[in-house]
Measured scan of single mutants.
Amino acid sequence: MPVRRGHVAPQNTFLDTIIRKFEGQSRKFIIANARVENCAVIYCNDGFCELCGYSRAEVMQRPCTCDFLHGPRTQRRAAAQIAQALLGAEERKVEIAFYRKDGSCFLCLVDVVPVKNEDGAVIMFILNFEVVMEKDMVGSPAHDTNHRGPPTSWLAPGRAKTFRLKLPALLALTARESSVRSGGAGGAGAPGAVVVDVDLTPAAPSSESLALDEVTAMDNHVAGLGPAEERRALVGPGSPPRSAPGQLPSPRAHSLNPDASGSSCSLARTRSRESCASVRRASSADDIEAMRAGVLPPPPRHASTGAMHPLRSGLLNSTSDSDLVRYRTISKIPQITLNFVDLKGDPFLASPTSDREIIAPKIKERTHNVTEKVTQVLSLGADVLPEYKLQAPRIHRWTILHYSPFKAVWDWLILLLVIYTAVFTPYSAAFLLKETEEGPPATECGYACQPLAVVDLIVDIMFIVDILINFRTTYVNANEEVVSHPGRIAVHYFKGWFLIDMVAAIPFDLLI
């Protein structure tokens, strides 16, 4: 008679799926529990143990900040960024110097990925580790590398530091407007667009060049630039800015003055950032001319202004700041037409079709709590990747769950009947059967004279019903998954307890 339990259901295979997918890609990662103190490590794979030199037993239950890997060259700011990422709910990448158990130093890129439950609360953290440099290539500990984003994938490793954006290309926007319009339909740009040429040739750093990471940081200074100062900065030398009595002219307006920039070969870094931020506020060169004239017309309804409409929906549905990093990277690809469009465009503009998908598509409701890094690593669709929660398995109709209350009560009843059979069957065979043979035949009273025979008949009927119930009862397979398919249940029961239950259900007393 089957006594099969499996009270692990309803099970959740999400954690096993993450481990299996990460292991298949030869990654070095740990999984931490966000619900406990210090976000203790609950799993670390073999790749991480080989990377740091510690065994799994030495890593388990330690804080996922990996303070046991810190050393003299470990930056405090990087460690603080990892700790801050564990307090938030967004994906974050941090470069930090770690030390192995043998004392060797290596520069590592740590990717902190939160995993949320159905309520939107962070319950786990996945920390992925990628070695960037070994100890002989690690720089000085005073050099802070965590304020910069990861290198873009479309640049060669040897040319990542030679990417320079020439400031004269930004200063000569109005001069290039006529050349853009003359391109017409034969050019790649839309009317009114501004073409910015980027020099990728390796050259020595000069005062006129600005690194790509500095251009990325310009967006942080746009908020500090007032509207009046932006307007004066875009007017140009024809209309000098008016300053109040006793007030000095704005240095932001002076930063885009061609006369002032041409007199000296070098520009201050602050002026460069502010000038680029001011130019980015204009949607095209037409807006710059309109600002000089004193009238700013409404933005025209053409394809170039609607190019950012799908980007707005993608940004609203993005799951991490990696989408913004990807957008900034692609927006700086050289030799393309940049349409400086305000994100607050007309909502009635139709979304044009684009061959290049900048932001990841909208994630469906079932995966809105899973970050983009987890979705990318697992390579699963929205119909396959579940949320991290207890999910009731989908069972067929008329199927009994093996952990249901009805099955528990039924098993206790069958257990009592088995005990009765084990006690009274030998007793009936030894004593009652002998008395029946010696006594007179009682054929007239039937079952009324033999109450134990009636009980034995009921017990046999219950055993037959138990066999039928076992054909529709779920079970737990070797992978700790609840199986509810009727065919698989029948095959599993035939290979197991079916023969024993059938022999126990045969009414031998009635056959004798």
Rank of each mutant, 00 (worst) to 15 (best):
V3M: 12
V3S: 14
V8F: 10
F14D: 12
F14S: 07
I18G: 01
I18S: 01
Q25Y: 08
Q25N: 14
R27A: 14
F29C: 01
I30H: 01
A32N: 01
A34G: 06
E37G: 14
N38E: 14
N38M: 06
C39Q: 13
A40F: 05
V41I: 13
Y43I: 01
C44S: 04
C44T: 06
N45F: 01
N45P: 01
D46E: 13
G47M: 06
C49W: 01
C49F: 01
L51H: 01
G53K: 05
G53P: 01
Y54Q: 01
Y54E: 01
V59S: 01
M60R: 01
M60S: 01
R62T: 13
C64I: 09
T65L: 05
T65G: 03
D67C: 05
R73M: 06
Q75G: 12
Q75H: 07
A78E: 10
A79P: 01
A79L: 13
I82A: 01
A83R: 09
A83P: 15
A85P: 01
A85F: 01
L86Q: 01
L87D: 13
L87R: 14
A89G: 14
A89F: 14
E91C: 13
R92D: 08
V94D: 01
E95V: 08
I96A: 05
A97Q: 15
Y99T: 02
K101G: 01
S104C: 12
C105D: 10
F106N: 01
L107N: 15
C108T: 11
D111I: 03
V112I: 15
V112H: 01
V113C: 12
K116N: 14
N117T: 10
D119A: 06
A121H: 10
F125W: 10
V131Y: 06
M133Q: 06
K135I: 06
G139H: 15
A142R: 07
D144S: 14
T145F: 04
R148C: 15
W154L: 13
L155K: 09
L155F: 06
L155H: 11
G158I: 15
A160P: 13
A160Q: 14
L165D: 10
K166F: 05
K166S: 15
P168Q: 10
A169K: 13
L170A: 14
A172R: 13
A175N: 15
R176N: 05
S179R: 11
S179L: 06
S182M: 07
S182L: 05
G183S: 05
A185T: 09
A193H: 01
V195A: 06
V195E: 01
V195C: 03
D197T: 01
V198R: 02
D199S: 01
D199W: 01
L200Q: 15
L200A: 15
T201R: 09
T201L: 06
P202R: 09
A203E: 15
A204S: 04
P205T: 05
S207M: 11
E208R: 06
A211Y: 09
L212C: 06
E214A: 05
D219M: 05
N220T: 06
G224R: 14
A228G: 07
E230L: 05
G236N: 03
S239F: 09
S239W: 04
G246L: 15
P251R: 11
A253Y: 10
L256A: 07
D259S: 08
A260N: 12
S264M: 12
L267S: 08
A268P: 09
T270L: 05
R273C: 07
S275Q: 09
A277Y: 12
S278Q: 15
R280I: 10
S284V: 12
R292D: 03
G294M: 04
V295D: 12
P298M: 06
R301W: 11
A303G: 07
G306Q: 07
A307F: 13
H309V: 09
H309A: 12
H309L: 07
P310M: 15
R312A: 13
L315S: 15
D321E: 11
D321M: 15
R326T: 08
Y327S: 12
I336G: 15
L338A: 11
V341Q: 05
F348Q: 14
F348N: 04
L349V: 11
A350E: 07
P352K: 03
P352Q: 07
P352T: 03
T353Y: 05
E357R: 05
P361T: 12
P361A: 05
R366E: 03
T367E: 09
V370T: 06
T371Y: 08
T375Q: 04
Q376P: 03
L378T: 02
L380E: 04
L380Y: 03
L385H: 09
